[in-house]
């Protein structure tokens, strides 16, 4: 025993022998040690205010887009598509301005992805027309012969299940996504209006609600600058059929707004808003 202690038991002056013989000591040491790295890396991003500055234009999804996001999640699109443009010259030319933290600030959970079997979609909005998306979701290889993306023809045939929409908004509101009580109460009218199934009556109300410049997050009001014009909400029959709200309506509504919210103005350095010296608080 004694010889053992001299030999293997002491490691650089640490009585490892004691640790090894006591389950509580070993367990507590391990439990503490494995917590350190995570705490140092994950926690500060919540209090370092330059990690995720608010950027004008970023708004929560409309009810229809929110359902589109859910379908995007459901189908596992993020397993083939990233939504995170890195600051590289090739990505800049191919996809556009690098992604900002704030752009996914309301995404519970984030959809950055980790694999690009298909191209990045962070700035997809407006790149193609609805007609193209309809055809592409139905049969990707009919428009892009090289594609390996599955066909999603059931989306245009499936009526959107809206039984969860209200609850979704309520849950997100609990987590500081700035939906007002008014937004939540009017989810159904807004959804129909956006998909073009209500003769256009609800469109103005929808626009007032989602093109606004005042957002209340966690009791704090964020007011965008007067001159900032929010990107107009897309309102139309996304699936080409104005009589119904289908899953495809929702998905295309979502795809068509990706990356559209922030206006990347010439001469404004979004980087410094991001981590460095914020040019604007």
């Amino acid at each position: 025993m004694s010889e053992y202690k001299k030999g293997g038991g002491m490691i650089r002056g640490i009585p490892h022998d004691t640790i090894e013989q006591s389950l509580p000591i070993l367990a507590v040491f391990v439990a503490i040690l494995v917590a350190v790295g995570g705490i140092v890396e994950v926690v500060p991003s919540y209090y370092l205010d330059d990690a995720e500055p608010a950027v004008e234009g970023v708004r929560p999804y409309t009810p229809l887009e929110l359902e589109g996001y859910a379908i995007y999640r459901r189908e596992g699109c993020f397993l083939c598509h990233s939504q995170m443009i890195r600051p590289f010259r090739d990505e800049k030319e191919r996809y556009g301005h690098f992604s900002l933290a704030a752009e996914s600030g309301f995404d519970h959970n984030y959809q950055w992805g980790s694999k690009r079997t298909g191209p990045d979609l962070a700035r997809l909005g407006g790149k193609y027309t609805d007609a193209w998306h309809i055809q592409h979701m139905r049969a990707p290889r009919s428009v892009v012969p090289e594609s390996v993306m599955p066909n999603y023809m059931w989306l245009e045939e499936t009526a959107l299940d809206t039984s969860k929409t209200k609850r979704r908004m309520e849950v997100l509101a609990m987590m500081n996504v700035p939906y007002s009580a008014d937004d939540i109460a009017n989810w159904e009218a807004d959804m129909k209006a956006q998909a073009g199934v209500d003769d256009g009556d609800g469109e103005d109300a929808l626009r007032t609600r989602y093109e606004r410049k005042t957002w209340e997050i966690d009791g704090e009001v964020t007011q965008w600058t007067d001159s900032f014009e929010p990107t107009p909400i897309n309102v139309r029959a996304f699936d080409g059929d104005a009589t119904d709200v289908t899953e495809l309506d929702a998905l295309i509504a979502y795809l068509q707004m990706l990356g559209k919210s922030v206006h990347f103005e010439e001469g404004v350095d979004y980087y410094h808003d991001k981590f460095g010296q914020p040019y604007r608080k």
């Binding site: 995720e52 996914s104 519970h108 959970n109 984030y110 950055w112 969860k164 609850r167 849950v171 609990m174």
Partner: peptide, 30 residues
Amino acid sequence: YIFVFNGLAIPVDMTFSYSAYSGIHDAMTQ
């Protein structure tokens, strides 16, 4: 630790839940 923290979410119902984190926080936790 990691399973519990990364799994924290608010259920919408049995078939859907929203992560307790969003954006960069969700990415780091993930």
